[in-house]
């Protein structure tokens, strides 16, 4: 985030006001960096005292939250990481139902702390938060 002049955004952050943030994540894990960037951003925001309300998973992003994720031990487990964040910081991890159905993601496959919901919920996240940030390619 540059310090200059995107109206609203940087000003709010620079003033150290606490903001409520929603995140929209549009890429799957590992293949693209977006999932890592979104996580790192959320982690940093929470550390600074901001609230991360929800992470909404869309497009291939829905693949971020399956409990079948099992990378080699020396790699980060992206799904487990989201689950931890949900449990520790009350961040809702929400996968779009239409995008999930296309990609074979069901309720049974969701990580602990994650659930499947509709695009109406994303709209609500956009409405109820100070910012909605999109991470994707």
């Amino acid at each position: 985030m540059r310090g200059t002049a995107l109206p609203g955004f940087s000003a709010t952050i620079l003033n150290s006001e606490k903001v409520k943030i929603g995140i929209l994540l549009k890429e799957g894990p590992y293949n693209h960096q977006a999932a890592d960037t979104a996580y790192k951003f959320a982690e940093a925001a929470i550390k600074k005292g901001h609230t991360v309300d929800a992470v909404f998973l869309y497009n291939d992003g829905v693949i971020n939250a399956t409990n079948l994720t099992d990378p080699p031990q020396d790699d980060r487990n992206i799904a487990a990481r989201w689950s931890e964040m949900a449990k520790e910081h009350g961040v809702e991890i929400l996968a779009c139902i239409a995008a999930s159905k296309r990609r074979g993601i069901t309720d049974d496959l969701m990580i602990e702390g994650g659930s499947i919901t509709g695009l109406g919920t994303l709209t609500d996240i956009a409405i109820r938060n100070d910012r909605l940030l999109t991470f994707g390619d």
Partner: peptide
């Protein structure tokens, strides 16, 4: 890619929520 199509689906839902 599916981005435009799923984007359009998102727009239609948000429109239903009168944004």
């Amino acid at each position: 890619s599916i981005y435009t199509y799923e984007g359009l689906e998102m727009i239609l839902i948000m429109a239903a929520y009168e944004q």
